[in-house]
Design a protein around this nucleic acid. Structure first.
Lengths: 228, 228
DNA sequence: ATACAAATTATTGTATACCATTTAGTCATT
DNA sequence: AATGACTAAATGGTATACAATAATTTGTAT
């Protein structure tokens, strides 16, 4: 958790990742090594290192002898990831219901309580943050490092294609209410029910996701390999 | 699919990965940059690149100022991966039951038919190969690239710690019978039942796995971070 | 004018070099 | 004998130079 001294490559990775995840760098965009090196006032070496790491994370696609591009997912791939994410979240919720300590269950309820403040005031950004905390608390409670890590990675990647999750009217209230039922069921350790609830929660959310995918610009509607 | 000319770093990555996954390089073993550079007749740069990529993939652990080592998983991590694998296999089986084409269902049955030959003759190696084909056919049938890729990756990693899966007496016969029931249920598209059967199939198999873990040499019984 | 071929340009991939930091090993001192 | 300091070696990080290749542009011929 401690920040310590970070290497140039580390800073680069963080910065570029942030620009991709925030949408400032769009899928398919070229990531020129020299341009990045100049921008961050370093040599190409740490730039290449950062790009390689982002490539491993799936955020950047490196085509041999052609350079690095912000990863571009096909509709098919996005749907596959969303489907996968739904099942993994449900699984984590089930494990959490079975494995969380009383203290962790209290903390989860507290996170939910705190998110209540954003519901009435319609603070979209802040609720999105609360939402992330809520889900990540469940990841940790699943007591399966590997599962938790996968979830964080997939969430980060898919977020790119799901930019305004809580802007639909009533969406914050819906999410909040569903979270409340999940908190309750986790508190009582009803594992199977928690799993079903989490799946329903995400499936309902992905309707908005599907709507958004359906209105994507044509530029993103490729299989991701033959980008111009 | 085409191999083409591969970069030095790419060749290194592939070679080292193969040596790790095949067990020629054992968990905990040191990967000296200079030695590798000399062996493959390249400079340190591509070696470092390959090691970093393998580190991202989890096959290699880089300890600051001490170099790279073949990743060593703790019991906790192995159990987490096995648990995760079980759920993913079950999920893939459910999807396969819902999504496989008639042709794919026929092929799956054929794979199973061919594996019958190894049951009576107790050909352990060949049955292991049939087993892999069987499971990979289901991965493909799940029609979820991401899920399929995850499964292949996890299987490859966990295989290192599960070296003799079909040597227990009667284990081949058990596995074959369970596969038969799964083939049947997939053929009839009974998705929920297939999922439950696959889970049971793997959980029973993991008893042997747990037995093996319990008898691991002490050298592997660490949390993977403080290895001597 | 267009299409195809050749040369140039630009960029990736690799090699080499440098410095700082740290670990491990050796030697000396108590 | 044990502990401490000093030295040597190797990693981590970065920079720069060179080689190989892909993209682009230019030129020529039909």
């Amino acid at each position: 958790m401690a920040a310590e001294k970070e290497s140039s490559a580390g800073r680069l990775k963080t910065s570029i990742e942030a620009e991709i995840l925030s949408g400032r760098l769009l899928p398919g965009e070229r990531l020129d090594e020299q341009v990045l090196a100049a921008r961050f006032v370093v040599s190409r070496t740490p730039v290449r290192e950062a790009l390689m790491q982002l490539s491993s994370a799936g955020l950047v696609q490196i085509r041999p002898r052609q350079g690095a591009f912000v990863a571009r997912l096909s509709i098919r791939q996005i749907v596959a990831m969303a489907e996968f994410l739904t099942e993994l979240e449900s699984l984590a919720a089930e494990y959490a219901a079975r494995r969380m300590t009383p203290e962790e269950r209290r903390q989860l309820r507290q996170i939910w309580d705190e998110s209540a403040a954003c519901v009435a005031s319609l603070e979209v950004e802040r609720y999105a943050e609360c939402n992330r905390c809520f889900h990540e608390a469940i990841y940790a409670g699943s007591r399966n490092e590997y599962l938790a890590q996968q979830l964080i990675t997939i969430r980060a990647r898919i977020r790119l294609y799901q930019r305004y999750p809580f802007q639909q009217p009533g969406e914050i209230a819906n999410s909040f209410a569903e979270h409340g039922r999940i908190v309750e069921a986790i508190h009582e350790g009803m594992a199977d029910q928690v799993r079903a609830q989490m799946r329903a929660h995400l499936l309902r959310g992905s309707h908005f996701f599907a709507d958004m995918v359906a209105t994507l610009p044509d530029a993103l509607d490729t299989d991701g390999t033959d980008a111009a």
